[in-house]
């Protein structure tokens, strides 16, 4: 390698490609993703119609080596995420085809489907229904982003077979994060993701359009309801420690969301262990999922939804 080339902006290798793939799959509801690279890790954002967003954070710790070289500062400073802000650091930001990225990460996966889960299975990542094809990425996986405007190059090595995927990148249409106002939280609930998964699955049996979330300090505490042309369904959660690990609801609140958007988070509900449900005064909903990987720190995927405006009510 000639040494006079500038170092790539970003280069990282990992043996946890399976875990990364599984995190990204949770956001696979759209074909495009926006990737933001900072010195802490990769933040992948997928959005739908400007009213919902999913952010998957792939921590630096999931990589065996991680090199991030600051791009030369440019005047057009994008708004950094409040959670991971760095005063003097401007993140690398680009968009890629998420569909292609997912296919690339599992390029060795189809064959592995025939092998049974070997040793070191994925714990919670087994994922059941959504993971028909188990990945066997025995070797390493390298990510490289040379310079602004370069393609994202992923190199996978599976027992000597080397696959190089060159993904075109483009400048993303910048969309600000949907903010959740932390000091005006109206509800904060933590529970097992499977409870939420079961509830949403139950509600999706009828063709419903809107999901109504009701939380109150007294019974029925927390309920999810959906109504469609064929009837309505309500799932109520009792305020029981074994059910709702954390339950902070100062007053009764009620918000409505588009059901189709909530369903984008179903994969995340299925593979994660816990979910933190937060809502602020304007009804912005955050579903933060904790995805555990055996032997490693958990990863987080954050879904944000805007509520229907209260006056657009079509109730009787």
């Amino acid at each position: 390698m000639p040494s006079n080339l500038p170092p790539p902006l970003f280069a990282a290798t990992t043996t946890s490609a399976r875990h990364i793939n599984s995190l990204l799959k949770c956001c696979g509801f759209d074909s495009k993703a926006c990737i933001q690279i900072t010195s802490d890790g990769l933040r992948v954002t997928v959005e739908d119609c400007n009213v919902m967003q999913a952010h998957a954070f792939i921590d630096k710790a999931l990589f065996n080596s991680y090199t991030f070289n600051l791009p030369s500062p440019s005047p057009s400073s994008s708004s950094p995420d409040p959670g991971e802000s760095h005063e003097e650091e401007e993140p690398i930001l680009f968009a890629v085809s998420l569909t292609a990225l997912l296919e690339c990460l599992q390029i060795f996966g189809a064959e592995a489907g025939r092998d049974k889960w070997g040793s070191g299975g994925g714990g919670t990542m087994a994922g059941g229904v959504f993971d028909q094809q188990v990945l066997r990425i025995g070797g390493s996986c390298k990510f490289e982003y040379e310079a602004v405007g370069s393609p994202l190059v992923i190199t996978l090595d599976d027992a000597g077979v080397i696959t190089t995927c060159t993904l075109s990148t483009w400048a993303p249409t910048l969309v600000d994060d949907i903010p959740i106002i932390r000091d005006s939280l109206t509800l904060k609930i933590i529970m097992k993701s499977t409870w939420l998964f079961d509830a949403i699955t139950e509600l999706s049996s009828t063709s419903v359009e809107k999901l109504q979330i009701l939380a109150s300090p007294s019974a029925p505490y927390f309920s999810l309801s959906a109504s469609g042309p064929l009837g309505s369904t309500v799932v109520e959660f009792a305020n029981d420690r074994s059910l709702l690990e954390t339950f902070v609801v100062p007053e009764t609140v009620q918000y409505r969301y588009r059901f189709g958007l909530i369903k984008h988070a179903v994969k995340a509900m299925a593979v994660s262990s816990k979910v933190s449900i937060r809502g602020d005064r304007r009804g912005t909903l955050s579903l933060q999922f904790m995805v555990e990987q055996d032997g490693g720190a958990p990863s987080f995927i954050d879904f944000r939804f805007l509520a229907y405006a209260a006056d657009s009510s079509d109730e009787e």
């Binding site: 890629v96 085809s97 569909t99 292609a100 296919e103 690339c104 390029i107 393609p151 000597g160 077979v161 080397i162 696959t163 190089t164 995927c165 060159t166 993904l167 075109s168």
Partner: peptide, 13 residues
């Protein structure tokens, strides 16, 4: 030739 992605797999030995 794809707009989004190029993929190449290589076998050795």
């Amino acid at each position: 030739g794809g707009e989004m992605v190029k993929v190449e797999s290589r076998w050795r030995d």
